[in-house]
Design a binder for these strands. Structure first.
Lengths: 345, 345
DNA sequence: CTTCTAATTTGGAACGTTCCAAAAAACAAG
DNA sequence: CTTGTTTTTTGGAACGTTCCAAATTAGAAG
């Protein structure tokens, strides 16, 4: 309703002091007299003053905004990641521009440039598939800290926070082997992503380690989604010699694989061992409970936020690469005889 | 790296014109000569100038930022809602502060006030449980359009966009009755939310309509989550006379109910009919595919964004209340003999 | 070459804050 | 009552834009 919002000079005038004094009060400076501080604070409440952070940012040429771009919010792994970041960011007194790129690099570019115009202090990016170093370069060059999370971008000279995909996949396969499986599939994912490559490498090496020959047909590509899992099973069913278990690219695929098996009257966890990757919240409550490589997305989000906040505060520091450890959580879907926990470094 | 980012006066100087002219170019004004426009645009590219929207906002005392607060991003219904909003907001040339309240009113209050300091043009709020009208009042009073989505807040004099929970629930129960069920449960949800109340009312009325007496025990409260669905089934299993089907508060609960039934060796869709509410993406691909009341969260998000954008552009308008229609999507989980589609107004 | 009009450009004030150097006030000591 | 010291307060410039009224330039007509 108010034509013009009340500003610092309005309350200064009302309190009979200068705007500088009010500013000092706002910043909690110890320089002001206790009496004036109280008077000013009272007026602030009465007049319904709201601080204009934009103006402050302009003057100080810095901001309290962190940009976050996530490739797919509807995937609960990334949603949890976002929630973790949110927690950290808010409690550090920052706010976030949180955007969803929907795996579109164009969209992502637009969003990043819009964030740039709005003056972000740092950016956390879970890049869309096909993101190139040049998409991030201008931002990074202008001195804004950038943290890449979950997926790496080849050639980008910025900080990264990735999970240990190789070790996780290897541990999962070892576990399946220890349960007596030898025909083990790898399901889901597109070949052009780094995550897929690393997990596949873990799969291969673990098989090699156990002298199990690799059957290329057992690497079944599909969309990294629930629907993709269903599709992968359909593809598998026509094989003459079928796998008896599978490591899935992620939990979404694993759930899809369960769905697909049921459609073919195979009971997941009994007739076929399944291991996922990520450990989203539903993994625990699903039936059968999903054996999976836990990545702790929420914790990862928090760490990413911490990292970017650290870099903002430190001015400019060198890019840092963190690999977060990962652990296999054994539940029912792999058909393990007993419930047991295996920890990894 | 640059000590100070290049501003409008830098390019003005380089181009040998005044800052006003550059500003005109930036705004795409038809007043500037084609030659100067080109020269300026070239320099903008060369010098790596980035527009400072904050400064512009300060001058014009308006902003291109929309605040969005969602109670639970890890619930895929709300995640999709957020994605829908995101699409609309971005394509209107706005950016969004998207925050997650985690069902905490305190958190929500903090977040809203922080958004206010940062100068949002409008707010879309999917309120945390227990939100009161007073939490929104100051914002609305200061003339910032607020749209409440999914959940209403009693006493708040702002626009709302809600789905037709009553009609949807009624349709679902009618369908179960038409399949021959008479012992129908209502599962999931806490009694203090409006959504729960409306859906429950639809359940009651549909039963009354068919002269089926209401068994209070068949209304089984639980958390509105997958885990809550599992819990509800456990509670149900001890009944002497058990329901043969259930309407669930939402899809998450419905999936949990499926999980719970399987644990008790009941095949969802065969031994027990299940209907969800929301129609999240996984509903279609799950096994059995979930019969559910489709709310189209993404579309709802888009409409909410449109509404708030409309109000921003229109200056101040009266609060508007929209109820979005809803339709029953019949799939496998209700045990329907044939696949059929029933449309509602 | 004037004069008139249309097209283009331009200084400065303003937006709401912070920062700085300096002024004013309060207090202490001589 | 000085003088010195400490505490508190204060104008104005600055941040990067937009807006306005006014100035300048270009073009047309006489």
């Amino acid at each position: 309703m108010n034509k013009t919002r009340t500003s610092i000079v309005d309350i200064a005038h009302a309190a009979g002091v200068s705007k500088s004094t009010v500013s000092l009060v706002l910043q909690g400076s110890p320089l002001v007299n206790e009496k004036t501080r109280e008077k000013v604070n009272a007026l602030i409440g009465d007049l319904g003053y709201v601080y204009n952070r934009g103006a402050a940012n302009l003057r100080q040429s810095k901001s309290k905004i962190i940009g976050i771009v996530v490739n797919d919010l509807t995937n609960s792994f990334f949603a949890e990641l976002a929630v973790g970041m949110d927690m950290m960011v808010q409690s550090a007194g920052y706010v976030q521009f949180l955007a969803h790129s929907g795996e579109s690099v164009d969209r992502q570019r637009e969003v990043i440039s819009s964030m740039r115009e709005n003056g972000i202090a740092g950016l956390i990016l879970s890049p869309a598939r096909g993101t190139e170093a040049s998409d991030i370069k201008p931002l990074a060059d202008s001195g804004i800290p950038v943290v890449l999370v979950v997926r790496n971008v080849p050639g980008a000279k910025v900080s990264t926070l990735l999970s240990d995909n190789y070790v996780g996949a290897k541990a999962a396969i070892r576990h399946l082997i220890s349960l007596g499986h030898s025909r083990i599939a790898f399901m889901g994912g597109f070949v052009d992503t780094a995550v897929f490559g690393e997990r596949l490498r873990g799969y291969r090496d673990a098989l090699a380690e156990a002298n199990i020959p690799l059957n290329e047909k057992f690497v079944i590509h599909s969309a990294p989604s629930r629907a993709g899992g269903v599709a992968a099973v359909e593809r598998m069913m026509v094989f003459a010699e079928r796998p008896t278990s599978a490591l899935c690219l992620n939990d979404a695929v694993a759930f899809g694989v369960c769905d697909g098996l049921r459609s073919s009257n195979i009971e997941p966890g009994k007739g076929f061992g399944i291991i996922g990757f990520d450990d989203v919240i539903e993994a625990k409550t699903a039936v059968p409970a999903l054996t999976t490589v836990s990545v702790d997305p929420q914790g990862m989000g928090q760490r990413a936020a911490q990292l970017v906040l650290k870099q903002i505060n430190a001015g400019q520091t060198d890019p840092e690469s963190i690999v977060t450890s990962v652990r296999l959580v054994v539940r029912q879907s792999c058909g393990a005889p007993v419930k047991q926990l295996e920890e990894l470094a």
